[in-house]
Design a protein around this nucleic acid. Structure first.
Lengths: 340, 340
DNA sequence: ACCTTTCGTTGGAACGTTCCAACAACTATG
DNA sequence: CATAGTTGTTGGAACGTTCCAACGAAAGGT
């Protein structure tokens, strides 16, 4: 009944039991007598008692908390993955601590340091910019699952990602089915997922016997870089563009329209990721959509498994992407003329 | 040198000093001798020592941590506000714990409960769906700053928000300057910020002597609701639309285009918020932009002040919005014809 | 040479929990 | 009727820090 926050001890004296029994009751132990349990619950309620997570963590030697680092909170892709993570973690009784380094490896490192100070039991990295050796050091300290990147594989680290090669293949195959052959790829720059997507493009062009018309224009993952890359790509007079991600695809569309051409009548465009704004009525972007929330839940369930059974070997989980046909793709006009 | 994580005590024995001195050194106390400090730092480094935040919080009786609840991580508005918060909090040596209730008041409540268990010293609510009495209970327990909503004011709670009435006025005034008079407002539904924006529209129409042509069409804050509202609004044959937020404005634009009209040639559209995707080249939305990051830093500095000086009275801080003219506004074609 | 201050350092108490061994009061067992 | 469980409860130790009062040594003032 002190002036400061009530502790378990205050609850105990009010309920006329020992502090140990209060602890047991609040943890939901079945060994607590019905009568005492009721008394304790009432006492806790009247005092407005709230558990002290710091003390709990210290005494129990486990925090029931996991950390999540996301590359960039501005990109809705990550919010959707996070949804999946949160839902699953709540189910398993874990608290999620979320940090974002804002694409800066230095911040990422110090944020992870903070998470570790909070005694997190596991870590999910939703994309990251960490060097492999830093990653290895982290994975050695705490069970770690990396989402979205599968390029770095470590024995102690799980990965959950989509199959970029196959996904991009889906896009190319679809365009070929529509009758396109002058299909240009705008790359996402020099980073692992983008490389796989280019790979997927090249393989798909080959299997459709279009190897010699395959063209890759270097680009990036943002609106602006997509715009710039598309401007260059237009000189190749393509009938379709396969772009590294949805943001860049939106930039590409702007470039096409500014050049006086129409999407999809003159040029078809396909993005990658399936971000929700791509579905906005005035965007309506055809895209290869990753099951984002599913990536999140998979990562979370995997991490929980790992926490409960640390000696289990790491897994590499791959989910398949899916083509989402919306309004930016169409048969090429005058297919014969362009068949060349 | 135990098998488990090194504690301050392990560092002490290795450096041949007392644990108290290690604590002092690691907190950066100036009373520690130069020689000892060096020894301790080396020892900590070689052991890979890391502070235990739980123990620290327990002993120091303060967590150096604040909590942030955001309404919805999918909406980039909130990510941008968060940027401001994070930067400022880092500067002040606080760790930020981020949670999102996903627009569900029940989750919001339980998330805040979790934050309080972690002994947060302050709370920032970036929009919320909490009932006023819940809010009051929370603000009574921990210094609280509400960002984006200024409708509920409590003696123990600061608010930081933009002036929606003035902001919407800016949009209307600009359209009038361009020569528009048939300006229709698409509301954002029944919630406090949306009501203020409608208010701002009505006041601005009045001061421009356009009261009798003022029309408000009920809508919402999403793409879909904006689309629906715009479809209805078109029957009023407006030359310009003032929309509750950017997402709804994008929906509205789609509706206009589907009706065979062009933006901005036939109808001008202005949104509200200034989300970054509004700047994408193929969106290019004219909007009333809030200084989002600034809202964040203001909230954070305010909270730190409050934590350091709890008896200070609460403040209501208002920042002004700014018109961001991009590509969805233009003089009405044949202004005379439409002047009516 | 003495007292006083300053500097660097120390052990121990606290913080609010969980965990464990121990125990009293019953109930069942042979 | 003694023994063995079972059920509910308990005090105390531990967790890894910070904080505080206290202290020895060196330095300064008279």
């Amino acid at each position: 009944m002190s002036v400061s926050k009530p502790s378990i001890h205050d609850v105990a004296t009010l309920a006329n039991v020992s502090k140990s029994l209060v602890s047991l009751a609040l943890m939901g132990s079945p060994k607590v007598g019905e009568e005492s349990r009721a008394k304790i619950l009432v006492a806790a309620e009247t005092l407005g008692y709230r558990k002290n997570a710091a003390a709990r963590t210290l005494a129990a030697k486990r925090s029931k908390t996991i950390g999540v680092l996301v590359l960039d909170l501005h990109n809705p892709v990550f919010a959707e993955i996070l949804d999946g993570v949160q839902i699953e973690m709540r189910k398993n009784g874990f608290t999620t601590m979320l940090v974002s380094g804002g694409e800066d490896p230095v911040f990422e490192q110090s944020d992870i340091e903070t998470l570790l100070q909070f005694q997190i039991e596991g870590l999910i990295l939703i994309s990251h910019r960490l060097a492999p050796e830093r990653l290895a050091a982290i994975a050695a300290e705490v069970p770690t699952v990396v989402v979205t990147r599968s390029d770095i594989q470590l024995p102690a680290m799980d990965t959950v990602s989509n199959d970029d090669v196959a996904g991009t293949g889906l896009a190319v195959d679809f365009l070929v089915t529509l009758g396109h052959s002058k299909i240009v790829c705008l790359s996402g720059g020099e980073n692992p997922p983008s490389n796989s997507r280019v790979q997927g493009y090249l393989q798909a062009m080959e299997r459709n016997n279009l190897s010699e018309s395959a063209r890759v224009v270097p680009g990036g993952l943002s609106d602006a870089t997509g715009y710039a890359a598309a401007t260059k790509a237009l000189k190749l007079s393509p009938t379709a563009l396969v772009v590294a991600n949805d943001f860049a695809a939106m930039g590409a569309i702007a470039a096409i329209q500014e050049a006086g051409l129409r999407v999809p009548e003159d040029i078809s465009v396909i993005g990658y990721d399936g971000i929700s704004i791509g579905g906005l009525k005035n965007v309506n972007l055809t895209t290869v959509s990753q099951p984002l929330a599913e990536l999140g839940t998979l990562a979370a369930t995997r991490l929980v498994e790992r926490i409960n059974n640390p000696k289990e070997p790491a897994k590499q989980i791959t989910v398949s992407a899916q083509l989402l046909v919306r309004g930016t793709t169409k048969e090429p006009t005058g297919a014969t003329e362009l068949a060349n």
